[in-house]
Write a protein that binds this DNA or RNA. Structure first.
Lengths: 167, 167
DNA sequence: AGCGATGATTTAAACAGTTTAAAGAAGGTT
DNA sequence: AACCTTCTTTAAACTGTTTAAATCATCGCT
């Protein structure tokens, strides 16, 4: 790959600043978690793209699959994002035809969100994409380790959401 | 909170679509991981903002703290993003004065990235922000559980990066 | 009944993060 | 010298995210 030949000539640099070079650097949980999730998003996206969704939208679909007719605010809270974020996401997904907004009949301040028939058709694909990603991600782990990981992640997520809430 | 009073009148809706309402929904690893990371990003951002950084930039700083003078490509690979993403991130951080680009002396195709003095000054703050976020995130977990979590996350990340690479 | 407070949603504006595809620049090879 | 390869950057097009302000409906109180 024609790079080694140059690497050797590199001893003359003379700009070493090792007084600040950190030790092998104990990797932090924060970076690690964010990075693992970045990888997951990418892989998941690749598996979701065939259904016309992006990673991040699947959470909305799954939440509605469980409880159809959630309000925008409830969805935002459930996914841990702010209301305007959810408004935009819902808007995009509505434009794609996966869900629809209907005002609540009793309290017109509320907007409830429902899966459309085409949206419901995607649920299976979404579930499969998630499972496939999970399979790739957990290669070499035992089922018990996977359960442990999920349990720990749930604790971490719950802790962090609590910390966020304490604004 | 004046919402309960309305919730009761809601039995008449008549638009139930329970034929598709999923069971309590076994939460997937994929969603869980992505969501936990979203929370982490938010909390970490809050702790980083005082140093003028955004979550995601800290990874670049830490990588350079360990090995100053990495190439743009090496940074991208290390953080698991594509080259143009890294170009943009580096550009922003250079504009903020935390790092600088210098062409390699021997191979002008290579751009090496170095921490500036102000950048190096931030390292301590960044480390503290990470530690603080970690502390919040792991409340109620034993040290051993945290180590387990990190070990499992490393496996997952490594698996996923391998899967991504197999383009 | 009307009016002001409350609450939910949306708009607007401003960033960061990401990707793919294409263009540029420099090296190495024949 | 011409060509192919490698690394970086540009360009274009998205999604995700936030804060602050605007909109609008309901609720509670006088």
């Amino acid at each position: 790959m024609g790079k080694k030949s140059k690497a050797e000539k590199k001893a003359k640099n003379g700009k070493k600043k090792e007084e600040f070079t950190a030790e092998p650097h104990e990797q932090e949980l924060a970076s690690l978690l964010v990075q693992a999730a970045r990888s997951m998003r990418t892989v998941l996206s690749r598996n979701l793209v065939e259904s016309g969704l992006y990673a991040g939208q699947d959470g909305v679909m799954l939440a509605l699959a469980e409880t159809d007719g959630l309000t925008a605010g409830a969805l935002a809270a459930k996914l841990g994002v702010k209301a305007p974020t959810m408004t935009r996401t819902i808007g995009r997904m509505e434009a794609q035809g996966f869900l629809e907004r209907r005002p609540d009949e009793d309290d017109a301040r509320l907007t409830k969100v429902y899966l459309t028939a085409p949206g419901r058709d995607r649920l299976q694909t979404i579930a499969e994409a998630g499972q496939h990603s999970e399979k790739l991600a957990t290669r070499g782990l035992t089922e018990k380790q996977v359960r442990t990981l999920m349990k720990l992640l749930r604790v971490v997520d719950s802790n962090l959401q609590a910390a966020r809430a304490a604004d």
